[in-house]
Simulated assay, not measured.
Amino acid sequence: MISSVRGEVLSVGLDHAVVEVGGVGLSVQATPATLATLRRGEQAHLHTVLVVREDALTLFGFADAEARDLFGLLQTVSGIGPRLALAALAVLEPDKLRTALVEGNITVLTQVPGIGRKGAERLTLELRDKVAADAAPGPEPDTHQAQGPARADVVADVVQALVGLGFTAKQAEQAVEKVAGHAPDDTSGVLRAALATLGRKS
C-alpha cells in the first residue's frame, strides 16, 4: 500500500495532481479542497490510498491522515466505492461528515450526489459507532471573496468538474451562477465556492 507521497507538483488539474516521486510522475486523484493547497513547482506531501482494480490502479490523495482514514471507512459500507467516497469528502468536510454520521443526519448525507436516503441510512447505521463521538462541524467556507466575475472558460471547467462528481448539469450551472460574482476568479476558487453552496442545500 502506498500510504503517502512526497515530491514536486508537476501539474494540478480539476480532479487530480501529478506529483513527481523518485523521477516518476504519479497521478493522484483528490478533492478540490486538497488540490487547492497544491502549487505547481512546489513540494507536496499527500496521504494516499492505492485502489487496485482489475483494469486500473488509482491513487487517491488527501491533505491529512484523518480524511484518508475516513475515505477508507466509507468504503466499508456496501455500495460505497472510492469515487463515491471521494465525492462525499468533496461535498462535506471531514468534521461535518463525521457529525452527520454520528447524528444520523440523512439530510446532510443525501447532499452527496449518488447517495440516496437508503444509502444514507445504511451509512449511519454501519458507521455511527465507528466515527469520533465528539465530531463537530468545521467553519463554513468563505464564499464571499469578491474578486470579479468568473470567466466563461472557468465556468465551463467548473460545471464539467461538478458533473464529474455526480451533480446534474442544471445543479452545477445554478451553483456556479450563484457564486460567480463572489468567488475568486480562478477555477479552484469557483469550484470550492460552488461545492460549498451545493453542500449547504437541504
Rank of each mutant, 00 (worst) to 15 (best):
I2A: 05
S4G: 12
G13D: 04
L14V: 15
D15P: 06
A17Y: 00
E20C: 11
E20F: 03
V21R: 14
V21S: 12
V21G: 08
V24I: 11
L46A: 03
L46H: 01
H47V: 14
L50E: 08
V51P: 00
E54M: 00
D55M: 13
F60V: 14
F62Y: 03
A63N: 09
D64H: 13
E66A: 15
A67Q: 07
R68N: 10
L70C: 02
G72V: 08
Q75K: 04
G81H: 08
G81V: 05
R83Q: 14
L86A: 09
E93D: 15
D95E: 13
A100G: 01
V102G: 04
N105V: 12
N105Y: 02
N105L: 06
T107R: 15
L109M: 11
T110E: 07
T110P: 14
A120D: 02
E126V: 10
L127V: 06
A133T: 07
A136W: 03
P137Q: 06
P137T: 03
G138Y: 05
P139A: 11
E140N: 13
A146V: 13
Q147E: 14
A150H: 01
R151F: 04
L162A: 08
V163M: 01
V163T: 09
G164H: 14
L165D: 15
F167P: 01
T168S: 13
K170E: 14
K170P: 05
Q171A: 11
A172I: 10
E173W: 02
P184F: 08
D185C: 05
D186R: 13
D186C: 06
S188T: 11
R192P: 01
A193E: 02
A193Q: 05
A194C: 05
R200N: 00
K201Y: 00
